[in-house]
Design a protein around this nucleic acid. Structure first.
Length: 434
DNA sequence: TCTGGGGTCCTAGGACCC
DNA sequence: TCTGGGGTCCTAGGACCC
């Protein structure tokens, strides 16, 4: 927590719906709902006109339709949202170089880096109002709500207070007066499950939370969350505005209108999603080592299966092969409603050097390759080794080899991918280049 | 026909290494 | 011949956020 109210949080009001109303004047003043259009869709954003009918984010489309049948239901134009978001983020960066976007419609701004003459309440209030009108002007009429306080936590709490099209500044020193009467749900990270646990412990408000010892909260909620909540209940928050956050995973998923039972179809869908993930990774200049599939069964049970490769990939067909192999181990009896593919463990595109660093102990070590077990490999398979044992080449392409560490006698085994020139992969002849 | 899609962070257990 | 710890990596699941 700082001595000045120098962290600003900006939140665009009913963002997706507002962009639609801006671009289509006939929708202005009327209930607009973005999302909830498909057979199993949910509401992404409801305009304030629709909220009056009790429609809100994450509500099923079916329920939204029941509550507000005359609303305009739109599936969303994400390019338009992204473009408008970029304009807004640009406005924020003109104010301060330290801007941390949280999503398309939200960001923190560090006013201490803005070069203002002063950071007193009067000055930051003026800056906040100017920013709101600038956003309104640049976006062609969108409104934003702003909160300004001495920490991220309080700035965010403040921006919730006067929604929409408003602003709240929390004078330094008054943070706890504001927080104490509020419900614990104002604290970010306190969702339904945590709220219920706290309720059972008789804790409903921040004031009540403040009376609980740190040990007790850790016992109740675990180390990280317990400690974090204990601090936030005292308005202690020194997290900096971080302008350089980078993505840690990239994924694509889809929920289907009817449950899928056909395994071949599942494989086809995973293959397509993997290709999309690869495309996005290359566009992003990133690659990653861990491929994860997500499978939601007909009964909403959600399963994740992942496999970590020995070197990063951005290749859609490699991701696809691993994804299909992961699916093979799953029982999907009863059908699946959702399939997804993602890659995490993202590295910068610069490949770690595969050749250098032949340093240290290697010299003296006797290099013994494990013997391939004499078992039945698939006919014609190329048997290879890595440090883990013997496997067979399942596929190759785009400079990558995929190896299954299994035999016909002992399926299933792990699947790994290598660069064709990966020194960890022994006895593999890279294909001749043409 | 209840329950999206894109993410982040945490926990917990097992493998493995020193 | 008896049972250490710490650290790191990997996997699976869950809570949460917008």
């Amino acid at each position: 927590m700082r001595q000045t109210a120098s962290i600003l949080h900006l939140d665009l009001d009913a963002f997706f719906a507002a962009v639609e109303q801006r671009d289509k004047p006939s929708l202005r003043g009327k209930p607009v709902i973005v999302g909830g259009t498909g057979g199993r869709g949910v509401v992404s954003t409801a305009s304030y006109e629709a909220r009056r009918y009790g429609v809100g984010s994450a509500m099923s489309g079916r329920e939204a339709r029941a509550r507000c049948p005359h609303a305009a239901f739109l599936s969303g134009r994400f390019h338009a949202y992204r473009d408008t978001s970029k304009q807004v983020m640009q406005v924020l960066r003109e104010l301060s170089p330290l801007v941390e976007p949280l999503s398309l419609d939200e960001a923190f701004v560090d006013l201490a880096a803005a070069g203002l003459p002063d950071l007193d309440v009067a000055t930051v209030t003026e800056v906040g109002e100017q920013l709101r009108s600038r956003v309104h002007e640049v976006t062609g009429g969108l409104t934003a709500t702003v909160g300004i306080a001495s920490s991220k936590f309080l700035a965010k709490v403040a921006s919730e207070i006067d929604k929409p099209d408003g602003m709240t500044v929390v004078p330094p020193g008054t943070e706890l007066d504001l927080l104490r009467p509020m419900r614990v749900t104002v604290i970010p990270g306190v969702g339904p499950a945590t709220t219920e646990r706290l309720r059972r412990a008789g804790i409903h408000t921040v004031a009540e939370l403040e009376l609980v010892s740190e040990d007790e909260l850790v016992r109740l909620l675990g180390q990280a969350q317990g400690h974090g909540l204990w601090q936030l209940a005292r308005a202690q928050d020194s997290r900096p505005v971080n302008a350089e956050r980078e993505a840690k995973s990239i994924s694509v998923e889809g929920t289907y209108d009817t449950d899928i039972n056909d395994r071949k179809l599942m494989e086809g869908l995973l293959t397509r999603q993997a290709k999309e993930v690869g495309t996005r990774m290359r566009k992003n200049g990133s690659s990653g080592r861990t491929v994860t599939i997500k499978v939601r069964l007909h009964d909403f049970t959600t399963l994740n299966r992942s496999s970590t490769l020995s070197s990063p990939t951005d290749d859609g067909s490699t991701i696809g092969r691993v994804a299909r192999a992961l699916l093979r181990d799953l029982d999907t009896t009863g059908g699946v409603r959702l399939l997804g593919v993602g890659v995490s463990g993202l590295a910068d595109w610069v490949q770690e050097d595969l050749f250098g660093e032949s340093d240290e102990e290697d010299d003296d070590m006797e290099v013994t390759l494990p013997e391939p077990p004499r078992r039945s490999w698939p006919p014609g398979a190329d048997v290879v080794h890595d440090e883990m044992g013997a496997g067979w080449v399942w596929g190759s392409g785009s400079g990558v080899v995929t190896v299954r560490f299994e035999t016909a006698d002992t399926p299933p085994g792990p699947v790994r991918s290598y660069r064709v020139d990966d020194p960890a992969l022994h006895r593999w002849e890279p294909p001749v280049e043409d």
